[in-house]
């Protein structure tokens, strides 16, 4: 299925819960409302015409006014891909877990939780993944974070001192 067919199918099925974005790339890109998040993902996985059985990645992004969780899906049966995003508030970002839908989401969500501070409700194993055990210096991937042993690159532009 090409980009327009996927977008039409999702728009007719879910209406206003899915907000399609216009991009110049061949993958359809959309925002999903957080209440319908799991339902839409299960539909994307189970529908025989879409058949997105492979979760390529799940990333967290920190914007100045919100967090976003971005998932990339792909299907080997129909050779198409999809990008889906969910907006989260800056205080107390919570989102249901995708590890019941795709097992691969397990470690991606653990990583996003410890680096950004996003809480994934219902995650089977919410331990930190990459940082060391007695880390208590905050969430490092947020913009503007500083911590111990973090040396920012000095400004080498003309006119700046070393």
């Amino acid at each position: 299925m090409n980009k327009d067919q996927i977008e039409n199918k999702l728009a007719t099925r879910f209406g206003s819960a899915v907000e399609i974005l216009k991009t110049k790339f061949p993958e359809p890109c959309m925002y999903i409302v957080i209440d319908k998040y799991i339902e839409v993902c299960k539909f994307l996985r189970d529908d025989p015409e879409l058949a997105f059985e492979f979760l390529f990645s799940l990333a967290g992004v920190h914007y100045p006014d919100r967090f976003e969780v971005v998932i990339h899906l792909s299907s080997s049966k129909h050779v198409h891909q999809l990008v889906a995003k969910v907006k989260l508030p800056l205080e107390n970002p919570k989102i249901p877990t995708l590890s019941g839908v795709w097992e691969a989401a397990n470690w991606y969500e653990r990583e996003a939780a410890e680096l950004f501070g996003i809480v994934f409700n219902g995650h089977p194993d919410p331990r930190p993944l990459l940082l060391y055990d007695d880390w208590n210096y905050g969430y490092p991937m947020r913009k503007g974070w500083t911590g111990p042993d973090f040396i920012p690159m000095p400004d080498k532009s003309k006119g700046a001192d070393e």
Partner: peptide, 10 residues
């Protein structure tokens, strides 16, 4: 990994 790196021992 000297600059901008929070997890590497220098």
């Amino acid at each position: 990994f000297y600059y901008d790196c929070y997890s590497v021992l220098k």
